[in-house]
Design a protein around this nucleic acid. Structure first.
Lengths: 145, 145
DNA sequence: GGTAATTCCCATTGATTTAGTCGGGATTGA
DNA sequence: TCAATCCCGACTAAATCAATGGGAATTACC
């Protein structure tokens, strides 16, 4: 039940981009250094985020990555789904016909429990936006100042 | 964010034992056949569950496994923690001093988000007992009859 | 007491995933 | 042009997953 470094690093990178939103493209190198992440590894993650449309990139000198939507329109769930796949504790909940496998479609009590778990996970991840995170970080920074 | 087969199989086995609770020890072979799980693999899981005190075992002929507490006193969370480790999306939430690692103890907005996720997961898993699952299964079986 | 049933324990293995690394090619601003 | 940057595919070492295999210890039953 762990998020891997893909999700963790990817979210941290996106959080950083949210803080810099509106300041033009940020080079990968800056993000990686600032967040203490291997540059090459982060590159792979940013590639996935770009292909999914969450960030856009500009090549060449002065290039870099930026959010393709405002921070309040990007949820943590969006990011995690791109980097970690569907948010589900059990494959049988992931649509795509896989549910037939267990042979207890109707009366599978465990499946209903897993579904409740999935719903509770998605409700947290889909209700938290990058803007939420940035705001929260700012609030607690002030409080500790 | 997936439960592995350890948690899945282990829960299924425990659910089966809950249905048979009070009928004496159930041999591993029966559980494995009934639930379609590799006997040898399930053996390892039952070993862990025994060492954690959730089931007790009787060796020799007529032996087997049984729940060491009534089904309503065993939660899904109990089982998952034994077989999958602590329920947490991120290591830094798992006490034991690991939290210092990220260097953002106070103002880490992401950490607070992960904590909310963890809480929501634990609240589902810790509030569902084997008795709940058994009851639910019975209810839906009737409904579909 | 013998035997079959059964748990218990340790080691091994093949496949997959994770968390990177490496090297180079394409694009663009100055 | 050239330096900064993104882009892409291949490779790898380590860990984890999902078992498999072999055999020792225990016990009910005849």
């Amino acid at each position: 039940m762990r998020i891997s470094t893909r999700g963790e690093y990817g979210l941290r990178a996106m959080f950083y981009l949210a803080l810099k939103h509106g300041q033009g493209p940020i080079p990968l190198k800056t993000i990686a250094e600032e967040q203490g992440i291997s540059e090459h590894y982060l590159e792979q993650l940013m590639g996935a985020l770009r292909r999914s449309g969450l960030v856009s990139s500009v090549r060449g000198a002065q290039g870099g990555y930026s959010l393709s939507r405002p921070p309040k329109e990007i949820t943590v769930g969006d990011i995690i789904r791109v980097l970690e796949g569907p948010i589900t504790p059990m494959d049988c909940l992931d649509g795509a016909g896989k549910e037939a496998e267990c042979g207890f479609l109707g009366p599978c009590a465990m499946r209903r429990m897993w579904k409740r778990l999935q719903d509770s996970m998605e409700s947290v991840l889909d209700s938290t936006t990058l803007a939420c995170l940035a705001e929260e970080a700012l609030f607690f920074e002030e409080e500790h100042a």
